[in-house]
Design a protein around this nucleic acid. Structure first.
Lengths: 239, 239
DNA sequence: TGTACATCAGTGAACGCGCGTTCACTGATGTAC
DNA sequence: TGTACATCAGTGAACGCGCGTTCACTGATGTAC
């Protein structure tokens, strides 16, 4: 966000935002792959070719929408964590972050589908989407690592008999976590494994809820999610 | 599948299958919402209006493709379970079923996206898709319930402090499981909760893998999945 | 401060394209007597 | 077994529609002197 200097700059920022908002609104009616530049232009009140002054192509508009969605979700999750006063209550922070993730997702199911649903055919996400996409999991990792570093933990669930050392499989994730922490490398592999599992469970649960797969199995999605993340916290030693 | 009596019936069955195959092939190139009846007709070698002799509308074709995908996945999972000779080795059956689920999904990522990805906008799945959709989870439940009924189990992971009785939340799923089993109702709620979680984790993990969210975190998807389902089995008391 | 020029936003027409669905039709296959 | 009629598969033209992108253009805004 650079400061707008001239009237032209200001107008450009405003209209860019209007186009994004119109694109987003359109995702509520259709899927991302049918996102129509012409329809967006109509909604904003300009001719279709004018949109090309702001976005070089339909894909670029899609990228901007994806980044905006990731950033909004990430900001919501981070804010929820930061609202927990007792910073040493890692379980409360975990639950708050998970809860905010669900709340944003339920409130914006189409934006959720845009980032966690099926990939758009023919569209390859550029590098700019990578960082915004990591905000939620980075925050969750910070909470877990913080808990283990401060000793406020009962240790991750033990691997069952027959489990192999997951180190080689999750090496990339471990490198990432090791960078963010100073906890014992001995306990790390299993903790990283469980963290990845918890992450998959959280978004798997949200996808199931939003895409209709829990119909007939779960009656109260909010409580179910709350109970799920609580058990995940237990498996991660945060209880 | 009724037996074809006349040449006309036989031709009808064959061409219906050809249309489905062409539709499926087209999903490899585009998403389900852009599935084009005209393109399917072209691939089959007929004029677009002729397809209406077989499917009343595009949505009906989509429904047939969805049911076919669920059935194929379900059959693959069931076959893998049934191939385990020692029927009392519930852990082996669990792992085999999970493995087959992943193998089918990785081999057919577009069919996977059709059934577990974003819902197609404007399309409402009719009742016919419900039963085929349950085949994998029903089989998983049978394995879990079988293990607990025969006592070959160490009990599900205990709920962490602060967890409430999940009975009301998962009542619908419990009713379903109670129908399939005669295991103690006392242990059931927590087991059902963990079963739903495991189910969400399995498909959450597959969605993450297939939709690109594990890039940069996991290096070997197959091992990662294997280790994940092994831990889920442990949490369910199958270890 | 005023003028000349450069930059930029937005227009409107056009390009070539594909879509789902309807309709009247031809010709082959199946059925009842 | 043969004929008359009904059923059905597939054709080809047409309907009205929307799409992404390009292009030459007008007129407003910004900048350098």
């Amino acid at each position: 966000m650079t400061v707008a200097r001239t009237a032209r700059d200001r107008a450009r920022q405003e209209i860019t935002a209007e186009i994004l908002a119109a694109g987003r609104a359109q995702l509520h009616r259709t899927g991302p792959s049918e996102l129509s530049l012409r329809a967006v232009a109509r909604d904003v009140g300009m001719v279709s070719s004018a949109v090309y002054r702001y976005f070089a192509s339909r894909d670029e508009l899609l990228t901007a929408l994806i980044i905006a969605a990731y950033d909004e979700l990430g900001a919501a999750a981070e804010a929820a964590d930061e609202a927990v006063e007792d910073r040493t209550d890692h379980l409360a922070r975990w639950q708050a972050t998970c809860r905010a993730t669900r709340e944003w997702s339920v409130a914006h199911p189409h934006d959720y589908a845009l980032i966690y649903g099926s990939p758009v055919p023919g569209y390859a996400a550029p590098q700019d989407t990578v960082m915004p996409a990591t905000r939620v999991i980075v925050r969750l990792v910070e909470i877990i690592v913080g808990a283990h570093a401060s000793g406020h933990t009962s240790g991750a669930a033990a691997p069952p008999a027959g489990a192999v050392d997951p180190s080689p499989v999750v090496a990339d994730a471990m490198a990432f976590i090791a960078e963010h922490s100073d906890i014992s490398l001995e306990a790390l592999p299993e903790l990283v494994m469980r963290t990845l599992m918890a992450w998959s469970t959280i978004f798997g649960t949200l996808s199931f809820e939003l895409f209709g797969h829990l119909k007939g199995s779960v009656s109260d999605y909010e409580s179910y999610f709350e109970q799920t993340t609580l058990r995940l916290a237990g498996d991660l030693g945060l209880a």
